[in-house]
Design a protein around this nucleic acid. Structure first.
Lengths: 126, 126
DNA sequence: TTGATGTGCAACTCCACAGTTGCACATCAA
DNA sequence: TTGATGTGCAACTGTGGAGTTGCACATCAA
């Protein structure tokens, strides 16, 4: 049990890396809209080749954001919300942590400022 | 008024691109822990040069995740939760949208399967 | 004023990754 | 079987970005 706060080996980093690419986000939007489609179909909706789409889908699959299922000679991909949900929660918790820390700092700063002033509240000359 | 669903020009993409880098996430953790510190101080806690830290801070600043404030000859950086919160909400909404769509698809699929079966529910032989 | 410390700017290297093309292999329909 | 369509693998190119070093400029303490 080391004292590290936010572990970096979580599935979160994979999701963040995957979502960093605009083309991959576009791909996810297409998948959510079209339902279950092949890489070839997806490539027809984008200005890139099928192979590029396949590589992106591999990254998204490794991140747990999509799933590929074989149907005859084609592979149908679909969106997978679980990993996205987990990352959203991770982010909200991190933001909440920052808020907590900042509130504490602000409170301490105000207390120190009060202490620095003389008891009668006279401001010191510069 | 195009029919695009999830706009990509939001502050979200900047945040995602910023969070994609592990070093940048480490930097944010350090900032949240140390409060207000300079790039030089941050560099002492990391295996990279001060200039690398400065560049990362510029990216984080552009994404709205950090703020730099001048104090004499040094610049103090601090964490900023607003953009992170916004992105967390964006992600949660997206995940919820996916859940909704998948539920609809599943419902339709089950209805279609019911229609394909004979009225008396007899399973067809393989 | 001098030395020390800290920031800002610029040029450079290096590599991971997005995207491409070409071809071999598998599957469906005729 | 043949042709058409679709996937899988491999090699290659180009570029953005992470990181470095060197130096000029600003600020603080003596």
């Amino acid at each position: 049990m080391t004292e590290e706060h936010h572990g970096d080996v979580s599935p979160v980093d994979g999701v963040l890396a995957a979502l960093a690419d605009p083309t991959r986000r576009q791909l996810l939007d297409l998948l959510a809209e079209l339902g279950e489609v092949t890489a070839t179909t997806l490539a027809e909706h984008l200005p890139i080749s099928r192979q590029a789409v396949v590589k992106h889908l591999a990254v998204l699959d490794a991140a747990g954001l999509v799933t590929g299922r074989r149907a005859g000679r084609e592979v149908l991909y679909a969106v997978r919300p679980a990993a996205l949900n987990a990352t959203a929660r991770w982010m909200a918790a991190l933001a909440s942590d920052w808020d907590r820390r900042l509130a504490t700092i602000k409170r301490l700063a105000e207390a120190a400022e009060r202490d620095a002033l003389p008891p009668d509240g006279e401001p010191r000359q510069s």
